[in-house]
Amino acid sequence: MRADRLVATLLFLQTRGQVTAAEVAAELEVSERTARRDLEALALAGVPVYARRGRGGGWSLVGGARTDLSGLTAAETRALFLLAGPSAVTPELRTALRKLVRALPAPLRPGAEAAAGAAVADGTDWTRAPADPGGPLSAALQRAVLDGVQVRLGYAAPGRPAGERTVHPLGLVAKAGARYLVAGTDRGPRTFRLDRIVSAEPTGEPAVRPEGFDLTALWRTLAGEMEERLSAATVRARAEPAAEPLLRRLFGGLLRVTGRPPDGGPLEIEVDGPAPQAVASRLAGLGSRVEVLAPPEARAHLARLAADLTARYGPPPQDGP
């Protein structure tokens, strides 16, 4: 018997005052027998629920008793619906939001409904490609985290063939439009992008969670290690001032302007990246607006890239007759 279903039953009962097993079954999309069993379970658990037999009867809370299951303030309620409203892309989440609206005290409902309609989530980017939904196995991984079971994971890291490993799911994290599974492995905690997971099979064995586990603290540690790897190399260059907005869009916080001549001359910049070649490849798209100064391997990479392009497309056309 799922505890979340019992909570939903109690919320429904509080909202309606009196309900029948058939009404609970319709609301929660379960059989009438299951609904009746859940109502009886609430009574056995000490919740003041009683059944009145006969015509016009049903299940009620003794004396109109209420149980505060949320403790939400008005501001917290609006924040919750503003966050969850545009993300309610699954039937389960939409149903949960509807139930929560009905369970809220009357003064909080207008604010919650307004917040739920105050944002929109578009499932595609500007190229019309679908945004990362976390992969088709997102629901299975979420269940594995909540149930605390190990998973045999098929994972395809960039540039490598897919491989399998058994992991201990610890939590799910969303960052910058991508979703990650945080899991324990034989090499310590690791992160796995959900859209690179090709299979996820629960083993039935219990997952091991570190003592005093804190997902937020662990994610900060793992994210810090990733950021260090992504900024392991620094490329120095000169750039036309007009190219600065594009450079900032390309590199964000990885770009630093170290010199800005007062006469409007070229900017002196530094750009961090995982390797000099990776940074140079991205700078190549700006053409002559950027001149890479160091390190030598970045300049050599650009020279090879220029030679490859010339061999493919030929020298640039000459102006004039």
Score class of each variant (00 low, 15 high):
6 L>M: 06
7 V>P: 01
8 A>H: 02
10 L>R: 01
14 Q>R: 01
20 T>H: 02
23 E>D: 08
24 V>N: 02
26 A>C: 01
28 L>F: 04
29 E>A: 11
29 E>D: 15
29 E>T: 11
31 S>K: 09
31 S>A: 12
32 E>L: 02
35 A>G: 12
38 D>K: 04
41 A>M: 12
41 A>L: 14
41 A>P: 02
42 L>C: 12
43 A>E: 15
43 A>G: 12
46 G>P: 00
55 R>K: 06
56 G>E: 03
58 G>P: 09
59 W>D: 04
65 A>E: 08
66 R>W: 00
66 R>M: 04
70 S>F: 12
72 L>T: 06
77 T>C: 04
77 T>R: 11
85 G>Q: 06
86 P>H: 10
89 V>R: 15
90 T>W: 12
96 A>I: 05
97 L>P: 00
98 R>N: 07
100 L>W: 02
107 P>K: 07
109 R>C: 07
120 V>E: 12
123 G>E: 13
127 T>L: 11
128 R>L: 13
129 A>Q: 14
129 A>C: 03
134 G>V: 02
136 P>W: 08
136 P>V: 13
137 L>W: 06
138 S>R: 15
141 L>D: 06
141 L>T: 04
141 L>Y: 03
141 L>F: 10
142 Q>K: 04
145 V>K: 02
149 V>P: 06
149 V>E: 15
151 V>W: 10
152 R>P: 08
158 P>V: 10
162 A>Q: 13
165 R>F: 03
166 T>H: 10
167 V>H: 01
168 H>Q: 09
170 L>K: 07
175 K>H: 14
175 K>E: 15
177 G>L: 07
177 G>R: 09
180 Y>N: 00
183 A>M: 08
185 T>V: 08
185 T>F: 09
186 D>Q: 10
188 G>R: 03
191 T>W: 06
192 F>P: 00
193 R>V: 02
195 D>V: 04
200 A>I: 09
209 R>N: 03
211 E>K: 11
212 G>Q: 08
215 L>R: 08
216 T>S: 11
218 L>E: 09
220 R>Y: 13
220 R>F: 11
223 A>S: 12
226 M>H: 14
227 E>C: 10
229 R>M: 13
231 S>Q: 15
239 A>V: 01
243 A>T: 10
244 E>S: 07
245 P>L: 00
257 V>Q: 02
265 G>W: 09
266 P>D: 09
268 E>Q: 08
272 D>N: 13
273 G>M: 06
274 P>H: 09
275 A>Y: 06
277 Q>W: 01
286 L>V: 12
286 L>W: 03
287 G>M: 07
288 S>K: 13
289 R>K: 04
289 R>H: 07
292 V>M: 09
297 E>N: 08
298 A>I: 08
299 R>G: 07
301 H>P: 02
303 A>L: 04
306 A>S: 15
309 L>A: 14
310 T>Q: 12
311 A>G: 15
312 R>N: 00
314 G>V: 04
314 G>T: 08
316 P>D: 14
318 Q>A: 15
319 D>V: 13
320 G>N: 05
